[in-house]
Simulated assay, not measured.
Amino acid sequence: MTAGRRLTVAAVLTAGAVLVSGGGMPGAWAAAGATPPRAALTALTATTTQAGVPGAVTGAVPGVTGVVRAGAAGAVRAFAAPHRTLRLGAKGAAVKELQNRLGELGYVPGKIDARYGGTTQSAVWAFQKVQGIKPTSTITARTWRALESPRAPRVLIPNGKPDRVEIDLTRQVAVLYRGGQVRLITHVSSGSGIPYCETATWQGKTQRFCGSARTPTGDFKTTWRASGWHTSYLGQLYNPIFFNGGIALHGALSVPLYPASHGCVRLPMHVAQILPGLLGAGVPVHVRGRFQR
């Protein structure tokens, strides 16, 4: 993209900046096969915030000093979309522009490699859901227009703690805030709501487990966690961070466009790879909404 198509605008956002990096995170990005937002944003500088309302901030990745997102007041960095129809499996410059833009806005598209694969698709889904667009892997004019003038994710807890997670069951989206700023926005799949009874071998015994497969709404806090694959009586959880008894945010190989879990909040694997480096213990987790099938 030419310099004329990428303009730096010194506008202040009232709805939030997105940082998808944090102190000490470059290694985690590399491990996840992801790329922090590009250093081409170094022309941006720190802006200000309104009381209690996130605003644009400087980035924490070395060499990146303005990882920002769009808000109600407009966009900090103007973006001229290529407006090419893209489908899963596409390659080329337009895909790279898509990945860069999603990364700038905090949607974690994975490695910026000009290849439209599963990690980019999950970021597209999250973005579309926040914008009120029915999620699809095909990028058409409506999604490109939204990328040019994106809206902020809906704040579920207006007076929430500066560090918190908000899980929107209605939209199947999770938002991580740090220091009052939006750090990461991701597609999720929560509890299916379909009661289950399953037989599994647990602690050396064959047992039968039954439940409601619900992700309860309410206000919780992160507790214990495990690194890598953790075996529970209902399956495998990747990098789980528990926040309500046995309910956790965790990576999964399947994160579909509908609630499908036993009650946990499934994350794309590349998001689960970096989340432990951004989310500490005792951090509030707010779960709101209800998915309508």
Rank of each mutant, 00 (worst) to 15 (best):
A152H: 01
G110Q: 03
T85Q: 09
R151M: 14
E166Y: 05
R69E: 03
Q121V: 15
K111D: 02
T140N: 11
R145I: 01
R87V: 09
G110F: 08
T170Y: 07
T138G: 12
A90M: 13
N159F: 12
I133R: 03
P153R: 10
A72C: 00
Y107M: 07
Y177R: 11
K91N: 10
G92C: 11
G160Y: 10
T136E: 14
R145S: 02
Q131S: 10
V68E: 15
A114D: 11
I167Y: 04
A152C: 09
A174T: 04
K129Q: 10
I167H: 08
Y177I: 12
R145V: 06
T85A: 02
T138Y: 00
A146V: 00
A81N: 10
K161H: 09
A78Y: 12
R171I: 00
L102G: 07
A146Q: 01
D163H: 10
G103I: 12
A114T: 08
R69P: 15
R145W: 01
Q99F: 05
V155T: 09
K96P: 08
P109N: 09
I167D: 05
V155H: 04
Y177N: 09
A114Y: 12
T143C: 07
L102V: 13
G160L: 03
A73E: 00
E104N: 15
N100C: 02
V124F: 06
P158I: 00
A72E: 00
G110W: 07
K129T: 08
P162G: 07
K96Q: 14
L169H: 05
A81G: 08
I112A: 10
I167N: 03
K91G: 07
K91D: 13
S137P: 11
P150H: 06
T120Q: 04
S137K: 05
